[in-house]
């Protein structure tokens, strides 16, 4: 039973950015549904949604940055698949960051409960 140089966990580098996007998506959608069902004040609900979106954007940025650093730094000195996975991970994390901007920013300006 030998241990791998590049453990299977490295595979998670690839979807990481979009996992954050998915959690953000579901959280914002749920917060909107709960806010409308519970009759929250519109201003307060919008603030909650914007705060959540900003939080997730920050998280997404951080993740992209870390994966990129990993790709350009440590992953270079590991066996080839590490660099390859980190490269794909950087691309997907950046795509996820762009997707977060594209998905959440336009929506936050429109009507909340109609």
């Amino acid at each position: 039973m030998s241990r791998s140089d590049v453990p299977p966990l490295y595979l998670l580098l690839i979807p990481l950015g979009f996992v954050i996007w998915s959690i953000a998506f579901v959280t914002l959608y749920a917060a909107n549904a709960i806010g409308c069902a519970f009759g929250w004040d519109m201003g307060a609900q919008r603030m909650v949604l914007i705060a959540l979106a900003l939080g997730f954007l920050a998280l997404s940025t951080l993740a992209s940055f870390r994966i990129w650093r990993f790709w350009t730094g440590r992953a270079r000195h590991q066996p080839a698949p590490a660099a390859s996975l980190a490269q794909i991970g950087t691309y997907t994390a950046l795509s996820a960051l762009a997707a977060s901007l594209g998905t959440f920013v336009p929506g936050l300006a429109v009507s909340l409960c109609i």
């Binding site: 594209g102 336009p106 929506g107 300006a109 429109v110 009507s111 109609i114």
Partner: peptide, 15 residues
């Protein structure tokens, strides 16, 4: 396009 469509959609709502 998304911005334009959301703007139109917003105007059509039963405010």
């Amino acid at each position: 396009l998304v911005g334009f469509a959301l703007y139109i959609g917003e105007r059509l709502l039963p405010h």
